[in-house]
Write a protein that binds this DNA or RNA. Structure first.
Length: 869
DNA sequence: ATAGGGTTAG
């Protein structure tokens, strides 16, 4: 400290602490202060001073008070040691000051020592000393002693209560804080502004009652007449943002008479963290208009804001203003700028800024730049930088590892795994979550599960990630188990992402419909059913489970919608072959100016395909390219190929394939081949089959479809040749598998299956159906039999198809009003399709069949697909 | 000042 500053300081000491400065003391304090500053040994300086002058505790204690105020902690501690050792008189203020310092420095041994001095000197009973002790213990994370001192205090005032309260929140004990607050109110202690600020901060968004509690506390604030207090108002704003009620935060803000920079910053950053970028921008402009001076904090949040809204010119403007204002350009601001440039996809500026940081480049700015490259789709550059950072001697931290693990396919999870084990980051929930997600994406669910189990404190993100992983691989069984375990452990509550993942896992074909409904119920109870990610997942789940009515109900009840909600509903109707409804939803989406993306058009064109709306399909494809500037992807072209193929317009379909900017993939050729099968086009069928077998030699579909064409044309020799080819190349036809859920249990059937306990009854029912069908003139379409056998045998084969066994079982094990839901892993057989139509009429049953391709709703002798499939 | 999980498709 320079001379000028030292003098200023001494003068401040005297003018603040003494009403009528004693000139003698004035001199002493000044000399003492100089001695403290210029001597290497502070204690010696005090002694020197002590020997020369008469002892005067007032001077010392004033100085201690000042040191404490100015956060000169070590000076304060040394001075106290001196006062104590030299036996100078000590008062309550002395003790409070030194206790505060012990807390701030987390000096445990000194804190204990001062506590015993408090007891010996009898000052423990003093309210302010007692309160300081509580505060000190809570700050050194010794909660037990803090509570003990508090309970032993005879006199307590609002500050004592608030100190303990504050201590609880600092130690993460929010439930205790809430309980203490209640107890305090029960004792009739009137909270002050600081109490309210503390309790409002304790209400973290981790419980279901958070909103209620927050609102109750708000009521008390009003009752206590503190609603116009700026500090309390600021806390209320933060609390409301935290619980997701930005409207209430805004109301508080509007009602505040006196706003300070904390208020404004709270609004800007609150809106930003709630994703309300335009509102944040509005507050920012209002702030500028009212001439509120910008603080460093404002700059930090505003820079973040303009990154979030991807407004590059705004970033540049702020950058320029910062340079002009001559603000202290701290690392924080520099990194914030770097992040914003990355978000605006201006990697050149980001890199320039980064390299201008020279010596200031730390792990944070490195990580920010790596993240930037990943966001810009340059995983390769990100990995290069990660290595470079290493060679420059900067060690990655947990953030860096979390980020770099998302750089698939450029990182190998096992390599990074070894590294994080070495650096002891592996059991952190953040790193562990990124790691397990990478293992899942790499197709290694067992490694992912192991990582999940090894995470020490699993937070809700880890739980949701593992559920999402099981959903990706379609393992609804493990997903449900984990979800139940999460509920039992009770340490973290599921959030909207958790529900979206588990619902998604149960949208898979292999899971029961009941589970989906139960999860819907759970999400309502937990209060998340209206969250966008949850309701969209529900729409998809119901649609995939065959319940398109419920899907639509959820969709209609959505409080807010984004492109994904609309896309989900359109795709749902498309899968069910309800082209009309799908197009209605699409037109409604268009009239509401909801932005459309590539997936929207996949849904719409698929809907046209399933409904045979060729002209409409063409129109939407053109609309996508011309009106929405969406570049068609492989998926769009294969949708068009499918549209034409199903309609028998194979020439047109081939034109699409030829016109595609890239070679057609498996999906397109499969559509062609299926079209050739339906429309008996052998020549093109051969070409398609050849392409398919060269693209995917072990895909059985190509062989099966080709042999079907030969079978349909009665060319049994060629058909046998194809079968032999399959055997030679060791290609196995996927076994047909159907299943049905009855009373929460799933029953699975193979063709000709005799393993079910009710086999006898099932086959009896089948025989009975068969004769009734024959009576009304049904003749089996033996074209669908792939084997070269006698006609009679063919009929037998048809009547034992897996979907028919499932149907018979469904009919005998449920009452007539129950609609049957049957699933099949392959496409439903054409003859079975006819049978299902008739059965729906003669048995008076609604039957829904989901095959590998779409849904069929059988009712009163007709199918929703109109036999177009 | 930097981080991890989620919803739509055939």
């Amino acid at each position: 400290m320079c001379m000028v500053a030292a003098t200023t300081f001494a003068i401040r000491v005297l003018t603040r602490t003494q009403k009528a400065p004693n000139p003698e003391i004035q001199v002493r304090v000044r000399q003492l202060h100089s001695a403290v500053i210029y001597s290497d040994d502070v204690v010696d300086a005090h002694h020197l001073f002590d020997d020369t002058y008469e002892r005067d505790s007032h001077g010392f204690n004033s100085l201690l008070f000042q040191y404490t105020r100015e956060n000169q902690r070590w000076e304060a501690l040394n001075l106290y040691t001196h006062i104590h050792r030299s036996g100078l008189p000590i008062n309550g203020s002395t003790l409070s000051c030194v206790l505060k310092t012990c807390g701030a420095l987390s000096h445990r041994s000194m804190g204990k020592q001062v506590h015993s001095v408090c007891v010996k000197s009898g000052f423990q009973g003093d309210v302010s000393v007692g309160t300081s002790l509580v505060d000190m213990y809570m700050k050194i994370e010794n909660v037990v002693d803090g509570m003990r001192v508090f309970e032993l205090m005879g006199d307590k005032n609002v500050v004592s209560w608030t100190s303990l309260l504050c201590g609880y929140t600092k130690n993460g004990m929010n439930d205790r804080a809430v309980a203490l607050f209640r107890r305090m109110l029960g004792m009739g202690v009137e909270p002050n502004a600081f109490t309210f600020a503390t309790i409002l901060g304790a209400l973290r968004a981790d419980g279901a009652f958070i909103v209620e509690r927050g609102t109750q506390v708000h009521g008390l604030v009003i009752k206590n007449g503190l609603n116009s207090n700026t500090t309390v108002g600021n806390s209320l704003i933060n609390m409301y943002f935290k619980v997701g009620k930005s409207g209430s935060a805004r109301a508080i803000f509007d009602s505040m008479d006196e706003k300070n920079s904390v208020t404004w910053n709270g609004m800007v950053s609150g809106y930003i963290s709630s994703g309300c970028d335009s509102e944040a921008l509005e507050i920012f402009s209002q702030m500028r208009a009212e001439g509120v001076s910008l603080t460093q904090g404002t700059f930090a949040s505003t820079i973040k804001l303009c990154g979030n809204i991807r407004n590059l010119s705004f970033v540049r403007q702020l950058h320029g203003r910062l340079l002009k204002c001559g603000f202290e350009f701290g690392d924080g601001i520099k990194t914030a700028l770097l992040v914003s440039y990355c978000k605006c996809n201006d990697m050149d500026s980001a890199v320039t800024g980064f390299f201008m940081m020279h010596g200031d480049r730390d792990v944070i700015s490195w990580t920010a730049l790596i993240t930037g490259y990943l966001q810009n789709g340059r995983g390769d550059r990100a990995v290069d930088l990660f290595r470079q950072m290493y060679t420059e001697g900067v060690s990655p931290n947990s953030f860096t590892y979390s980020v770099i693990l998302t750089a698939h396919p450029f990182v190998s999870p096992s390599v990074v795994h070894a590294q994080v084990i070495k650096t002891s980051h592996d059991r952190l929930s953040t790193v562990g979550t990124a790691l397990l997600d990478t293992y899942f994406k790499q197709g290694n669910p067992d490694a992912a599960t192991k990582v999940f189990d090894s995470i020490l404190e699993k937070d809700i993100v880890s739980w949701s990630a593992v559920l999402a992983g099981y959903a990706q691989i379609g393992d609804s069984g493990r997903a449900i188990k984990v979800f139940i375990k999460l509920g039992r452990e009770g340490s973290t509550r599921p959030n909207e992402y958790t529900f979206s993942s588990i619902i998604n896992a149960c949208a898979r074909p292999a899971s029961g419909a009941e589970q989906g409904k139960q999860l819907h119920g759970c999400s309502i109870k937990a209060g998340f059913s209206y969250a966008l990610v949850v309701s969209s997942a529900l729409v998809t789940m119901y649609a995939k489970r065959g319940n398109i009515e419920n899907a639509n109900k959820v969709f209609q009840r959505q409080r807010e919608r984004d492109s994904i909600s609309w896309n989900s509903m359109i795709s749902g109707y498309a899968q069910h072959g309800d082209g009309k409804k799908a197009l209605e939803i699409f037109e409604e989406m268009r009239s509401q100016n909801v932005p459309m993306d590539a997936v929207t058009f996949i849904g719409v064109i698929t809907a046209c395909t399933h409904a045979g709306l060729v002209v409409e399909g063409e129109m939407y494809f053109n609309m996508m390219v011309e009106d929405h500037n969406i570049k068609p992807m492989d998926e769009h072209y294969s949708c068009m190929v499918d549209l034409y193929s199903r309609a028998g317009m194979l020439k047109k379909a081939m034109e699409v394939i030829r016109g595609m900017p890239f070679p057609a993939g498996v999906t397109s050729w499969l559509s062609i081949l299926a079209g050739c099968r339906a429309h008996r086009n052998l020549e093109l069928g051969k070409v398609a089959a050849e392409r398919l077998t060269s693209l995917q030699p072990d895909n059985s579909a190509a062989y099966v479809l080709l042999s079907n064409i030969y079978a349909a044309l009665g060319n049994w020799n060629e058909r046998r040749r194809v079968r032999r080819m399959m055997d030679e190349r060791n290609v196995k036809k996927e076994a047909g598998l159907s299943w049905i859920e009855v009373k929460h249990k799933i029953h699975i059937f193979l063709a000709g299956d005799v393993s079910h306990p009710l086999t006898d009854q099932i086959y009896m029912k089948l025989d009975q159906l068969q004769s009734r069908l024959r009576d009304i003139g049904y003749r089996p379409d033996t074209n669908h039999v792939l084997h070269d056998v006698e006609e009679e045998h063919k009929e037998a084969i048809l009547s034992q198809h897996s979907e028919r066994l499932a149907l018979a079982f469904g009919l005998i094990s449920t009452t007539p009003e129950v609609p049957l839901h049957i699933m099949k892993n392959l496409r439903v057989c054409g003859d079975c399709h006819n049978v299902f139509k008739i059965v729906s009429e003669i048995e008076g049953r609604d039957i829904v069949v989901r095959d590998s391709n779409r849904f069929h709703h059988f009712k009163g002798g007709f199918c929703s697909c109109g036999d177009y499939w």
